[in-house]
Simulated scan of single mutants.
Amino acid sequence: MKGVLLVNLGSPDSPTAKDVKPYLDEFLMDPRVIDVPNWLRNIIVRGIILQTRPKKSAEAYQKIWWEDGSPLIVISERFSEKVGKQIEIPVALGMRYGSMTIKNALQELNDKGVDEVLLVPLYPQYAMSSFETVVVKTMEEQEKYFPNMHLTTLPAFYKNEEYIKVLSESIAEGLKGFEYDHVLFSYHGIPERHIRKSDPTKFHCKIDGKCCTTNSVAHNTCYRHQCYDTTRRVTEYLGLDQDKFSVSFQSRLPNDPWLKPFTDFEFERLAKEGKKRLAVVTPAFVADCLETLEEIAMEGKNQFEEAGGESYKHIGCLNDSDDWVKVMAGWIEAWQNTEALPA
């Protein structure tokens, strides 16, 4: 019997330092997130970051926490429930980090008699710290606890025509009535070395502005290329002129080369260059979360206005919109009936 496992990042159980600390520990101790030797990761995470970050992160979570829980969890649950109503096979939801574990989600499917699972990492672009770690963790749990299950993974869907269409139309709807000078496509940041580590050729990815537009098998696992390609496809769909949009990367750790340009630097640059009315979209996420609701919608607005910007709009993610649900249900049905996966 077939079933579906949807997996997103996860969330602490509450917006308190007490619950944020173990969540951050699990997240940051993942060797695909901070990819240094374990002894050094222990020093960085447990000796430095976790001494101050939980309190600050808890305060950030408190700003965006909903009455019924973490926005990411609530939205993901709504999305999962809606998808489940449109297909004929079981759907389970798990998180890479936190108490809604992948193991529990696989157990839920196993209890319903599922032995063929379509794993859906809810990340449009491939990165070792997001898509890859979900796949690896799911495979580990399956092999250890559910050896009779067979896993098939939905590939990164950053260039899928149906995804591009639903994303573009969602952005177009968000832009209605907003007179913008510029649209900033802000993606989550990752260390530059992750790009090189994910390059199967070990020589193509140079992050020099040319490699991402030069055809290569490396693009199948290159986060930077996939971010720029998503942007290109969406802006072509929307008919945006080249001078009306740009790409940036949010989040980084100090003393480590991360993808540039940085989103917070772009807020300042765009405002000072006369782009007074800014719309920001976050296509690395399919569901709004701390990084979109606090870092972009709140902090980003403050940064842009402090730099001289006058009007700012964050356009939300696809979340549990009916059109996005329909696209996902269609992919699942295609796999269920023909084993076909979206290109």
Rank of each mutant, 00 (worst) to 15 (best):
M1E: 13
V4M: 02
L5Q: 10
V7W: 00
N8I: 00
G10I: 02
P12D: 09
P12Q: 03
T16R: 12
T16F: 03
A17S: 15
K18A: 06
D19G: 05
L24R: 12
D25I: 01
R32W: 08
I34C: 06
I34W: 15
I34E: 08
D35M: 02
P37M: 06
L40Y: 13
R41D: 10
R46S: 03
G47C: 13
G47N: 13
I49D: 09
P54N: 11
K55Q: 12
K56F: 03
E59W: 03
Q62E: 14
I64F: 01
P71Q: 04
L72C: 05
L72E: 06
R78D: 05
G84P: 08
E88Q: 13
I89Q: 09
L93T: 07
L93W: 03
L93G: 05
G94S: 05
G98W: 09
G98Y: 02
M100R: 15
I102W: 08
K103V: 11
A105F: 11
Q107C: 02
L109Y: 13
V114I: 15
L122N: 09
Y123L: 01
P124D: 03
Y126N: 10
S129R: 04
S129Q: 01
S130K: 04
E132K: 06
V135H: 07
V135S: 08
T138F: 03
M139N: 11
E140N: 14
Q142N: 08
Y145K: 11
F146A: 10
P147V: 05
T152C: 00
T153R: 03
A156Q: 13
N160C: 00
E161S: 14
E162T: 12
E162H: 10
E162K: 12
I171G: 04
A172R: 15
G174T: 11
G174Y: 12
Y180V: 01
V183R: 12
F185L: 11
F185I: 07
S186C: 04
I190F: 00
E192F: 07
E192A: 06
E192W: 00
K197Q: 14
S198F: 06
S198P: 01
K206L: 07
K206P: 05
C212G: 04
H219M: 04
Y223S: 05
H225S: 11
D229L: 06
Y237H: 15
Y237V: 09
D243H: 13
F249R: 10
S251T: 15
L253V: 05
P254D: 07
D256N: 14
D256W: 10
P257L: 05
W258C: 06
W258S: 12
K260D: 14
F262P: 09
F265A: 12
E268W: 03
R269S: 12
V280R: 13
V280F: 12
F285D: 01
A287K: 00
A287V: 00
D288Y: 05
D288S: 04
C289F: 02
L293E: 14
E294F: 00
E295D: 11
A297K: 12
M298W: 07
E305A: 02
G309Y: 07
G309M: 01
S311E: 15
Y312C: 00
L318Q: 05
D320P: 02
D320K: 00
D320Y: 01
D323T: 08
V327N: 10
M328K: 00
A329V: 02
G330Q: 05
G330M: 01
W331R: 06
W335T: 07
T338E: 13
E339Y: 03
L341G: 04
